[in-house]
Amino acid sequence: MTTTRTGPAVFRPVLLVTGGYATLSVLTLLVIVLFRNDHAMVTDAVWVRATLVVASSLLTLAFARSAARGSRKGLLRLRIVSAVMLVAIVVIVALPGLFPLWLRIEQAVCGLLLLGVTVLVNGRRARAR
Rank of each mutant, 00 (worst) to 15 (best):
C110F: 06
Q107T: 09
A67I: 01
V93G: 07
R77F: 12
R125E: 09
T43G: 04
V31T: 13
A50D: 09
V81I: 15
V87C: 02
V87L: 12
L112I: 11
L103I: 00
C110K: 08
V42W: 01
R69T: 07
A68T: 02
T43N: 05
W47L: 14
V121F: 12
T43D: 05
V81A: 12
V109A: 10
R104D: 04
V119Y: 09
L75I: 09
M85T: 12
V54T: 04
L30F: 13
A40K: 06
F63A: 14
V91L: 15
R36G: 06
E106W: 00
A108N: 07
T28R: 06
V117N: 09
A94F: 03
I89N: 10
L113Y: 02
S66E: 06
G111A: 12
T51E: 00
A108Y: 02
R79C: 09
F63Q: 05
G97P: 02
D38F: 01
A55D: 10
L76G: 11
K73V: 08
L34S: 15
D38E: 01
L30C: 14
A83G: 09
V81W: 03
T51I: 00
A83F: 05
G70W: 03
V87T: 07
A94K: 01
R49I: 02
F35H: 08
R79T: 11
V46W: 02
V109R: 02
V93I: 13
I80M: 13
A64P: 01
I105N: 08
W102K: 03
R125S: 09
K73F: 06
R77P: 02
L29D: 12
V109H: 05
L34P: 00
I92K: 04
R124W: 07
L61I: 06
R124I: 11
L52A: 15
A108E: 05
L112Y: 02
W102Q: 03
S57E: 09
A94S: 15
G70A: 08
V48P: 00
G97L: 07
P100G: 10
G97Y: 04
V109L: 09
R65C: 06
L75Y: 05
L95M: 09
R77K: 14
R125Q: 06
T51R: 01
L103D: 01
P96G: 11
L29Y: 14
W47D: 13
S56I: 03
A50E: 08
V90L: 13
T51Q: 07
L75W: 06
N37Y: 08
T43Y: 05
N37P: 01
R36W: 04
W47Y: 07
I32D: 02
R36F: 03
S82F: 03
L61S: 10
L113D: 05
A62P: 05
N122S: 15
M41Y: 10
T28P: 04
R69K: 13
L101Q: 11
L115T: 15
Q107L: 15
V46F: 07
A62N: 09
H39N: 13
P100Q: 12
D38M: 07
W47Q: 12
A67Y: 02
N122G: 15
G74L: 10
L113H: 08
L98P: 00
L120F: 01
L112V: 14
G111I: 04
S66W: 03
L34K: 14
V87H: 00
V33C: 11
